[in-house]
């Protein structure tokens, strides 16, 4: 039980994607114009990630090593098509707003990365906990980032007006440049926090997580 709990909670803070584990940047930047878009995207990712981890982990002894990437892709793509269908049936406006980024969940490296790095080596219950935790962390990050950008860019959060009419919306935040800069500053904040904690523990400062595909198991696997 303890191990499952550990896998579940690591995605919420210690390895929270995409802030600590820099994975899945494109949707993070693209759909966080508003908080509810971020939340919707996050929920879709939780669904796909948890079930893909479940399937990969259950089949891990069956899948031959040579075609495992192909198998992961088929599993992930199936789930993504499933999400597309369900979203069209029950949340069509969200489907329209997220646009092309719903089918693109399949190439979100968080899905294949977790399949390769975790689910293909661990038993089912741990893999599901990992997928659920990572998915929740991703949802949390996207919602927070979306809320931040929405507050500054529109003066609202989840569509609720926060400020009076005197507020001049900082539209920069909802345009593409604002997305990049905002995420950059949040990541810098995380790095500063990490180093502050390490300093208190008497450890040397480190540079933040890079993006040399180290965190994404798939690319690393391919390089072998």
């Amino acid at each position: 039980m303890g191990a499952t709990w550990k896998e579940l909670t690591k995605g919420l803070w210690r390895e929270i994607p995409p802030f600590r584990l820099v994975l899945g940047l494109c949707p993070t930047l693209a759909v966080t114009k508003t908080a509810d878009n971020g939340l919707g995207m996050g929920l879709a990712v939780i669904f796909v990630l948890t079930l893909s981890n479940l399937a990969v982990s259950a089949l891990r002894r069956l899948i031959p090593a040579k075609v495992r990437i192909a198998c992961f892709i088929v599993i992930a793509a199936t789930l993504v098509v499933g999400v597309e269908l369900l979203m069209q049936a029950f949340a069509y406006p969200l489907y329209q707003r997220l646009g092309i980024f719903v089918p693109l969940i399949v190439v979100n490296c968080i899905i294949l990365g977790r399949a390769e790095a975790f689910a293909s080596r661990n038993p089912v219950h741990l893999s599901v906990a990992d997928g659920l935790g990572m998915g929740l962390g991703f949802t949390l990050s996207l919602t927070l980032l979306g809320a931040l950008r929405e507050v500054l860019g529109y003066g609202t959060v989840f569509g609720l007006c926060l400020f009076g009419p005197g507020f001049k919306p900082f539209s920069f935040m909802i345009e593409a440049p604002g997305a990049f800069v905002c995420l950059g500053l949040v990541l810098a904040g995380m790095n500063a926090l990490t180093n502050w904690q390490r300093k208190r523990q008497g450890l040397a400062a480190v540079e933040g997580p890079g993006h040399d595909c180290k965190s994404c198991g798939l690319c690393a696997a391919d390089k072998k």
Binding site: V22, E175, A176, V181, A188, N191, A205, E207
Partner: peptide, 23 residues
């Protein structure tokens, strides 16, 4: 570049400024 900004953050900020220029 300040330590907290090195790597990804400065890359993202740079991308943002490039995107700004492309406006």
């Amino acid at each position: 570049v300040p330590r907290a900004l090195r790597g990804m953050p400065i890359g993202l900020i740079l991308a943002g400024l490039m995107s700004l220029a492309f406006f």
